[in-house]
Each structure stands twice: as structure tokens, then as C-alpha cells.
Write a protein that binds this DNA or RNA. Structure first.
Lengths: 237, 237
DNA sequence: GATGTCGCTTGACGAGTGTCAAATGAAAGA
DNA sequence: TCTTTCATTTGACACTCGTCAAGCGACATC
């Protein structure tokens, strides 16, 4: 499926190999891989793997954003987390039950490099740094899931929305010429609502509430925040 | 703090070493360790580590039950999960931020063996089985946290209580002479409420509701379930 | 035995949010 | 441009659940 050098480049792209290792040109390797077309390109909206699927490999996300969903019952679905470039997908399935407990859907056009689970185990056996990367990913997701769970219990919709915007800041936030924080939402309203554990209608009202209090202004998927402290105040209460 | 042989016995007790490995008498090693008194004994109610503490080691739970809490704000606290004998505590902190994101409190008298993080890393470097055990633990906790999060969003209190009873069945359930499922709750009502993301008052009402519908009968911390299917039906709806 | 404390239960009430229905808006196709 | 379709918004209403208050039982202390 991919040559050894291509695979190394893929590892590097997701941060598995130290830059001091066999490859050190992370960015160039990444673009080289993309141009070679060795890694799968996934269109926006496509499903990488579905809940209940047998785990056949780990997906290394070279570029793009992926949503991890879990469906519950017939019509209920929850967006558990977003993964951005540099992340590995499906780790929980490999080391857990062996089947995917949730689905992965591309939110943007993505480039993905698939790795066989055995290859990952081999690499872990060889390099402690790789072990730590994989463990770090799982520990981070666990921490985030715990946090989200606490938020759903203790915060109301408006505060959860604020917390989500804050979380999106890292990977999807920029600063405009006036010094305002601008966030490009990678999600539809429906998905946003699902992510904070509410309904689109309630989310819509929460958005309106934040706008009325001048905390943030929403223009489609573009959110502008003048004062970050206002957002922080929302989650305190 | 502990001799090499004692440590090996500790690893074995928490399932880190295969029985086909250096030690194979798991249970006898375990009791031997307890009798030797080399591992710390923790009284019920004691705190093993607190949220915000710097991670100094991994705690291997030889015997007992531990609750993982997260406090949020001043008076809000959530019980995230229970860990029983054979579990490792604090993994998420070691491979994550380096500080404990939540607290561990003994629910029963516990015997615990503390391990330095470096020792764990060494062992992982030596044995792939150990890596898989650690990854498995994190993957399991992540899966469980995701599940709990979905439950809080989509199920109401009554159904969440049923789901919790079902989860407690594995480690705390027995079958009496009449073939009924009996669960010894390791938690106070307050902690149970916290675990399913509600208040003691609401939990009390949910318990009463299940009793009225003959799904389960509560006698203090002893729960009797005549038909398991009735419990399962609760979470479907 | 009387008193205090603590954990749990019960009742009454209101706030937050889910649900249903309809209006509006935006994107795609004829 | 005019439909068609879908996502989002808005409004009205019902319901679960959190909150406050009081009552109850167990247990320890005086």
C-alpha cells in the first residue's frame, strides 16, 4: 500500500518520528507525500470508518479536519471530538475492543495515510518516543472527554458554547487587523449543537444570547470575539 | 521503596506481566505482597492523589475500589469513574500534562503499590505486552468516558441509573440462591448521583421509580434485580 | 435519654431546554 | 429567474430536573 520511505514520511508528518530521527524535513516530506499522491485523499463528508467496523488500520491525518461521531439509538448522534492534521485516528479501537466504537467523518477535504496496526506496534517496540506519542494522544482525548462530560453536567448551553469556542481557538482561531480573535468554525450548526450536547434550536438561542451581550458576533461560520476575557467569564459562572 | 521481586509481584497483580512470564503465581504473589506489607495500605476515604498535584508515580491498585473525581468550581464535583483491583491509576496524568487532572479517593480500604513513571517506561520498552496493557487501560477509560457523555446527553436520569447498575454488574455483582442479580453498591447516594451527572434528590426519585416498576429493589447499598432484561429495556428507551 | 450531626428522602416550585411547528434564508437545479 | 430543497432561526409550549425547604432515620456524643 505504501513504500517504506513513504511510510516514514507519514510517521514524521503526524509527529511520530523525532525530527532528529531518520527524517528531519517534516514539512517538505509532507508536501512531497501529498504531491506523490501516495496517501488517500478523502472528500469532505466522506466516512473514514464507521461505528461497528472492524479495525483494519490507523489513519494518520496529514491534512484536514475529522469529526468523531457516536450514534446512539436510531436518530441520536453525538459529536465527540474533532481531530486536526497531525492526529492519529482509531487508536481507541485498536487497543480496545478491536472494533470502532465511533465513526470518523471528514469535515474538510483530507489527506490520510493508513497504517496497519502491526506496523504501529513494531514502531512502538523500537522507539519509546513513539509510545509516548500514542499514549499522549489517548491521554489527551481522555482528558478532553472527561472535561466535556463535566461541562455538560455543570454548565448550561450558553457556557458550553463559550467553552467550545475557546477550544476551537487553538487550531481554528486567527487574529484580524484590529486585534480581534476570529474563529472559522469547521462545523455546521447541527454538528456544533451535537458537540456541546444540545439541539440546533437551543444552540441558535445561545448564539443570539452571546451576540446580544456583545460577547461574540456570528457571521455564518465566522465568529469574531473582541475581548477574550468576556468568553472566559462565561464559563466561570 | 520496594525490592525488585516485590515490584515484579506488583506488576503481576495488576496484570502487567503475563502469567507465562517471570512470575506465574498471580494470586499467591498478591497475598504474599499483602502479608509482607510492602505496599501501602490506604484507608477508606483517604486521597491517593489530588487534582492539580504533580504526578510522582503510577498507583497500581492491588485491592479495593477507588473513585476518580473532578472538582469544578467551588462546590461542584463529578465522579468520573471507578477503578477496581488490577487497575493502574494516574496514567492520564503521566502521559498528559504531568499534573493530575482529577483526584483519586479510596472508597474501600485499599492496598496500593506505587511505581515511578520511569520504571513503567522501562518496562514498556522491554515488553510489548506491557505497552498493550497500558494502552488498553487508556482506551477503555476513553471509551467509557465517551459512553457516559453520550448517556448524560441522550438519556434521562432513570435510564442513566439503569446504565450505571449494569456497569457495576461486572465487578460488584453476584447472583443469589434464587438466581437474582445482586449488586453491592460501592458508593454513597451522593457519589452515585455525581457519577450519573445528577443530584441526590433526583437520584432518589429515580430509585423510587425503578422500585415502583419492579425493575430493581434497593435496600441500602444492596440492589436486587430479578430480570436483567428489565434493566436493559430502561436504556433502550 | 436527650441532643446534634449527617445522609437520605419527600414535597413544591421554577428555570432551562427539548419538542413541535412555522417562518426565513441560502444554495442548487430547472 | 423561479422553484425546490435543506439548514437555520424563531416562537409557543411541555416536561424533566435542579433548587430550596422540611422531614426522617441512623449514629455518635453529651
Amino acid at each position: 500500500m505504501s513504500s517504506p520511505t513513504q511510510r516514514d514520511a507519514c510517521w514524521t508528518a503526524v509527529g511520530l518520528l523525532d525530527s532528529s530521527g531518520r527524517n528531519d524535513l517534516v514539512q517538505s516530506e509532507l508536501t512531497a507525500l501529498q504531491n506523490a499522491g501516495s496517501n488517500e485523499s478523502v472528500a469532505s463528508g466522506e466516512t473514514l470508518f464507521a461505528q461497528g467496523d472492524r479495525v483494519t488500520g490507523i489513519a494518520c491525518l496529514i491534512q484536514g479536519t475529522v469529526a468523531i461521531h457516536r450514534s446512539h439509538g436510531k436518530e441520536h448522534s453525538t459529536l465527540l471530538r474533532l481531530l486536526d492534521s497531525g492526529s492519529m485516528l482509531g487508536l481507541d479501537g485498536v487497543f480496545g475492543s478491536g472494533t470502532h466504537a465511533n465513526s470518523a467523518v471528514a469535515l474538510t477535504e483530507c489527506s490520510v495515510c493508513w497504517i496497519e496496526p502491526e506496523a504501529l506496534c513494531e514502531l512502538m517496540a523500537k522507539s519509546p518516543a513513539v509510545i509516548r506519542k500514542v499514549l499522549g494522544r489517548l491521554a489527551f482525548d481522555l482528558e478532553a472527554s472527561d472535561e466535556a462530560r463535566v461541562n455538560v453536567v455543570h454548565l448550561q448551553v450558553r457556557a458550553r458554547l463559550a467553552a467550545m469556542l475557546l477550544a476551537l481557538r487553538d487550531r481554528h482561531g486567527t487574529v484580524d487587523e484590529s486585534g480581534n480573535l476570529v474563529i472559522r468554525l469547521p462545523l455546521s450548526r447541527r454538528d456544533m449543537a451535537s458537540a456541546i450536547g444540545t439541539r440546533p434550536e437551543s444552540l441558535s438561542r445561545a448564539i443570539r444570547a452571546l451576540e446580544n451581550d456583545r460577547v461574540a458576533s456570528f457571521h455564518g461560520k465566522r465568529v469574531v470575539i473582541r475581548d477574550l476575557d468576556d468568553l472566559l467569564d462565561e464559563i466561570e459562572l
